[in-house]
C-alpha cells in the first residue's frame, strides 16, 4: 500500500466538502456548512492492483477575505480544482488557484471538476472561460455531488495520473 496526499481547491461553496462526502461516505447534504481551515478524510482505492491510501485534504474555500494557506499544499501528490459554473466567478478563482498551486508545488497531476452538474441548466459558462479551461490542458469532469455523477471517476482519474507520474 502506498499513501498519497491530495488537496481540493476552489472558491467557497463550490462543493468541495460535498464531493468528498459523496466519495467517502456516499451521502449528500443540502445544508451548507463552510469549512474552516482544513478537514482531512481518507479513502483506500485500488488502481491496477496497487492499493493507494488517499489522504484527502479539504481546504477552506478561498474568497477575497480568506486567502488559501499554501502551506497546506505542501507534499501533495495531486489536486482537484473545483468550480461551480452556476457562479461563473468561481472559475476565475479556479484559474488563480491553479497558478498559485503550480507556483508553490510545481507541476503535479491536477484535475478540474465543474461541479453541480445536476443544475447544468443554470450553468453560465462564457466562451472565454471555456477557452481558458482548454488552455489549462488538464482533464475536466462535470461532476455532481448531489447525484454522485462522475465523482468516483474524478478521484480515480487523479489517482491513476499520480501513479503513472
Amino acid at each position: 500500500m502506498i499513501q498519497k496526499k491530495i488537496c481540493l481547491l476552489g472558491a467557497f461553496s463550490v462543493g468541495k466538502t460535498s464531493l468528498i462526502k459523496r466519495y467517502v461516505d456516499s451521502i449528500f447534504e443540502e445544508k451548507y456548512l463552510t469549512t474552516v481551515g482544513v478537514k482531512i478524510d481518507k479513502k483506500l482505492v485500488e488502481i491496477e492492483r496497487q492499493k493507494v491510501m488517499m489522504m484527502i485534504w479539504d481546504l477552506a474555500g478561498e474568497d477575497d477575505f480568506c486567502k488559501l494557506q499554501v502551506s497546506y499544499l505542501r507534499g501533495a501528490s495531486g489536486y482537484i480544482l473545483v468550480g461551480d459554473p452556476t457562479r461563473p466567478h468561481t472559475l476565475d478563482r479556479l484559474f488563480c488557484l491553479h497558478k498559485k498551486a503550480q507556483k508553490n508545488i510545481g507541476n503535479i497531476p491536477a484535475i478540474i471538476a465543474l461541479n453541480k452538474h445536476d443544475l447544468c441548466n443554470q450553468w453560465s459558462l462564457s466562451f472565454a472561460h471555456r477557452e481558458e479551461l482548454e488552455e489549462l490542458q488538464q482533464p475536466i469532469l462535470n461532476t455532481s455531488a448531489k447525484t454522485g455523477d462522475q465523482v468516483q471517476s474524478l478521484f480515480i482519474d487523479l489517482a491513476t495520473q499520480m501513479l503513472s507520474n
Binding site: 499513501q3 496526499k5 482531512i40 478524510d41 481518507k42 507534499g75
Partner: peptide, 27 residues
C-alpha cells in the same frame, strides 16, 4: 506530506486512525 511513516501503540490502547491523526497533526 503529513503522511504517517510508522505508528506504534502500547498494548491495550485503542488508537483511532493513525493516518488521519498524523495528517491532522501536520495540518
Amino acid at each position: 506530506t503529513g503522511l504517517v511513516l510508522q505508528h506504534l501503540e502500547s498494548n491495550d490502547v485503542i488508537s483511532n486512525d493513525p493516518d488521519m491523526v498524523s495528517a491532522m497533526l501536520t495540518a
